[in-house]
Simulated scan of single mutants.
Amino acid sequence: MAIALTTLVAEAQRYLNADSISDYCPNGLQVEGRPNVQRLVTGVTASQALIDAAIEAEADVILVHHGYFWKGEDPCVTGMKQRRLKALLANDISVLAYHLPLDVHPDVGNNVQLAAQLGITVEGPLNPDNPRTVGLVGSLDEPQSARDFARRVHQVLGREPLLVEGQQMIRRIGWCTGGGQGYIDEAVAAGVDLYLTGEASEQTFHSAQENGISFIAAGHHATERYGVQALGEYLAKRFAIEHIFIDCANPI
């Protein structure tokens, strides 16, 4: 069964409340392809590898978390950008991208989906006083050591995380998928035992160590694989179309 591309886009916009969220890139339809959709491919980033795999899969639409046209980037269609867009346009494939709307959504968002994967009970926002803070706080059913929790992260995500180990047992956790290491001070203020995100900066080590909490960097790509899959499944069920998630390996 095929649906109109405009119908798919309108539902994604509505479901994610995308028009109300200020972001660093345009959310929604970034590249327009054929007018009807039967097969939807999802992935984390609209890289050349994902485009090539989507072409092979005969996709009509690629839905991603990391799309194109970021604020501050060179607007010229040259080099890598030209090759990507040329492949999409030549094969009449659309790109639909959602960044912050997919991070914060209460059902299919990256943060709630990662919590479900790791067995964390969501309690609320990391910083209720700052709505621009993209992150959550929650708890484990039973306290465990930082090393034990890091082993679970490794098992679930299939990637050995970077661990800065504190002394206390882990019960209360703050987290933000992707490049959320800058929120570690807000996590400390929230009283967490461990803060988890995708990436680490040099100063992250010192913030964790000197504030007496544990820290895990589990990979930007690895922590953001689940929201786009959940959104893809939602749209596939809503419109009875085919959905394929393609995970292009990324060690970062």
Rank of each mutant, 00 (worst) to 15 (best):
A2F: 03
A2L: 15
A2N: 12
T7N: 10
Q13M: 12
R14V: 02
S22G: 13
D23H: 01
Y24T: 07
C25V: 11
N27W: 02
N27I: 09
G28K: 03
V31C: 08
E32C: 03
G33Y: 04
R34W: 00
V37P: 00
Q38M: 08
T42D: 04
G43A: 11
A46K: 05
S47W: 02
S47K: 09
S47M: 14
Q48Y: 06
E58N: 11
E58V: 05
E58M: 06
L63I: 05
V64W: 03
H66R: 10
T78D: 02
T78W: 09
K81T: 14
Q82D: 07
R83C: 11
L88T: 05
H99C: 07
D103M: 02
V104F: 01
H105D: 13
D107A: 11
G109I: 04
G109L: 07
L118Q: 05
G119P: 01
P125Y: 02
N127I: 02
N130R: 15
S139Q: 09
D141L: 11
D148I: 14
H154P: 00
Q155K: 13
L157V: 00
G158T: 01
R159L: 14
R159E: 10
P161R: 01
P161S: 00
M169R: 15
R172E: 06
I173F: 05
Q181T: 05
Y183N: 10
Y183A: 14
D185A: 10
E186R: 11
V188I: 08
A190Y: 02
A190Q: 03
V192S: 07
L196E: 01
G198A: 09
G198V: 03
E199R: 06
Q203I: 15
F205L: 13
S207N: 15
G212D: 05
I213T: 02
S214T: 09
F215R: 06
I216D: 00
E224F: 11
E224C: 04
G227H: 03
G232K: 05
E233P: 00
K237F: 04
R238C: 03
R238Q: 15
A240D: 14
H243G: 02
I244F: 08
I246H: 03
D247W: 08
D247P: 01
D247N: 12
